[in-house]
Every structure is written in structure tokens, then in C-alpha cells.
Design a protein around this nucleic acid. Sequence first.
DNA 1: CGCTTTTGACCGGCGC
DNA 2: GCGCCGGTCAAAAGCG
Length: 425
Amino acid sequence: MPTNNSTAAQHVRNSDKLVDDPKTSVSPNQTDQINKKKKEEQLESTRAAMSEAREENERLKTMLAQIVKDYQSLEMHFSDVAKQEGTINTFLTCKNPAEEHELVSLRLGSGSSAQERPKVGSRAAGELGNLTLGLECKTENSSEETATKGEAEKTGRRVGDEVSPQGHVKRARVSVRTRCDAPTMNDGCQWRKYGQKIAKGNPCPRAYYRCTVAAGCPVRKQVQRCAEDLSILITTYEGNHNHPLPISATAMASTTAAAATMLASGSSYSAGLNFSLPNGSGGDGRQFFLTNPSIASSLSHPTVTLDLANPSPSQPGRPFSVAPRSLSFGGCHLTYGGGHFRQPGTGQNTITDTIARAISADPSFQSALAVAITSYVGGAVPRREEQLDLGSSSSQKQGVLGYLQRELGASGSRSGPNGSPDGDE
DNA sequence: CGCTTTTGACCGGCGC
DNA sequence: GCGCCGGTCAAAAGCG
């Protein structure tokens, strides 16, 4: 992690400045002595900083090991639960192989898990810098939803009216707040407007859209401008796509899918995800911060909100921040705040837990990260031949984790005694 | 002509 | 039971 590396580098730079300062009022001998002393001090402080950096790297490695451990235990736990309930194996398969080259299927909503996903050959996600992604053969959410959907088809009932048999809890919604001047956010999908309403409490009309990529797709979205800030567009997605998606639609869809899955998994945390790309992988060592997913759990419509309009102002204790990053979804700009992990000992466990949960609890979250990275690194959507594996197998998940682990490890070695801090080479 | 958008009507859930 | 409100329908209008 560059936090302390940067500090060390700063020490070096500051000391260099001091050394270069002309001291005209002292003799050459005195100047030499002063310089020596300063160099020694500088050396000491640099050593201290590097030692700190080393310690931090060790801590981060431990954190990551914990993340992997958590993930594995969660996976095993889910496996047990799934066996008990017998609710898996409700797959939908890709029917048209010809489309597989151009389309990635993805479903919004909840429920997919490691065991449910069919294994599709692909390289590990660890090669994100040069992303090669497999094609998903998509996962059905749950037997419950499958049954409901089937019933809806039989009766001709609107699929959007699906209600869980347990009661009044409707499907999860994912609300995305973005800064966007366009009337709607271009998320890659095709939508048809079917209604508009003035909602109470907001003078801006709320528009209702349904997905028209495939007939009968139950996915709907609501688009409304924020009353407080008209430049902010609030797009709320609901439902699961029952068809392959254009690859240009996967970035937003997988992000929302991940959020929805997070919601469905019962998580109740709110935090950001921070990660960096390595030099040489096309990322230039850039930092990412996926802004806070927050969950507003109403009984009728549990909603997870991805606030991509604000660069995470609600993260206290972030010692450093960099200019907000932006990620393009279609015509609109989603901004990502940048930052680093906290300094040791100040709530680090919270962040660790958050990341551990986010990564381990939800394979599609990993996909979202992969997509975000790909989008960012590539400057656009992945190339056609770069297929996104949203049906990550266990090994692929390990690949993402392995990637992060390698990155942390690599940054650790970079900031080691023989390494130079990032960006100062 | 076919598709999309607009817009008023309608329906169902929920709170009082 | 009633009214409010969110969400959807469907006919009419608009557009290419």
C-alpha cells in the first residue's frame, strides 16, 4: 500500500530540498557537518517510514489472508445450506451459441451463488490487466422466483407483480445515483417508457421504463432527478434480465446485480471498496474506490443505493484522497472517489470486514469489480473478444482474490527495503 | 406503417 | 371504509 511509501518518498523529497538549500553564512566544514547530520536524520526517518510501511504491508497481507479464509468458510457454509434446502440447480442456459460471442448474459437481482454457477472455462480474474473473460451461462435466482415466474407466465400475470410467497417482501431494488445531464442514463440496455408520474415530495417527474432487449423481460427501471440536486439522476432498477445482455450493458448491470445480491444476502454494511491497479497492467497504479452501497430496507421494497454521484464524503478518517475517478457508462459519467485505507489501528477492522464480506459474500461483486476495472483500464467497455465471466467458478473467485492478494503482496515488495515507493521511480 | 412517447384512468397497497 | 399514493395500463398522439 502506497500510504507509507508515499510518506517515505515525501521524506526523501523534503530532505533533498533541505540538502540543496544554500547556506551562505557558514563555512564549508560546518556545511558538510550539517549536511551529514541532516542526511543521517533523513536516513533515520526514511528507515522509520519504511519500517512502518513494512508493518502495514504485513498487516494487509494478514487481512487478505483473513478475507480468503472468510470467503472459503462462507462458501462452505453456503454449500451446506444449499444442500439442506435443495434449492440449487435452477440454471438457465445460453441457448444461442452464436450470440455468445457478442453478448454477455447477466441478471439483476439476488440469489446467485458460487455453487449455482456453472463452470465456464476462463482464465483467472487475476489477469485483469489483460482481461480475458469467459461467457456466463447464467444463473437463475432461486427456485422461489423461478416458480413465481413460471406461474406468472401461465396465468398471463405481469411478471413485474411477482411477490414472494412468504409475504409482502417484493424483489430487491437497486438505486443508482449518478451525475448525468442526459434525460436518462445510457446503461447499454434498451428501454421503453411506459409511464410517468409526479411523485410526492419531488417536483421532478418519475419516468417508468421496461427493458425491451427481449420480449417479456421483467426488468424495469425508474428514472428521476434528485430534488435537491437536479444534476443527479436517480435510476432504480428492479428485476432480473431473462436474456443475454449487450456487453455494453454489463458494467452497470453487474454493478447493480452485485448490489442487489449484496442486499439479498442480508448484508447490512455500508462502506466503500478501495483497490488499486498495478503498474504495467494498464492501470498505472491507479486507485479505485467504489463508493458506498447503502441499504434502505423498507418492507415492501428493500433497496440498495449506489451513490456514484459523490466521491465518498462520508468516509471519515481517510488520510489521503485523490481526485475523483470517473467511469463511463454510456453517455454518463459515474464518479469514483479515490483514497487509501486508513492508518493502522483506526477502524481498520471495519474496512477489512467490509471488503471481506463484499468479496466473499458475493461473486457477482467480484464481477462488478472486474467490469469496473476493465471499463476503466480499457477506457471503455471490454473488447468483443474479452468476454466477461459472470458465472465465476470457485477457482475464478480465487483468481480475483489472488489478484488482490498478489497486488497487496507486490506493493509490499515494492515498498520493501530495496524497493522504491510507487510513483517515485 | 410501425414503433415510441405521452397522459389520463385504473388498480392495489397502505395508513388512518 | 376511505383517501392517498405509487405503479401500470392502454388509447391517442408523435415521429421517422
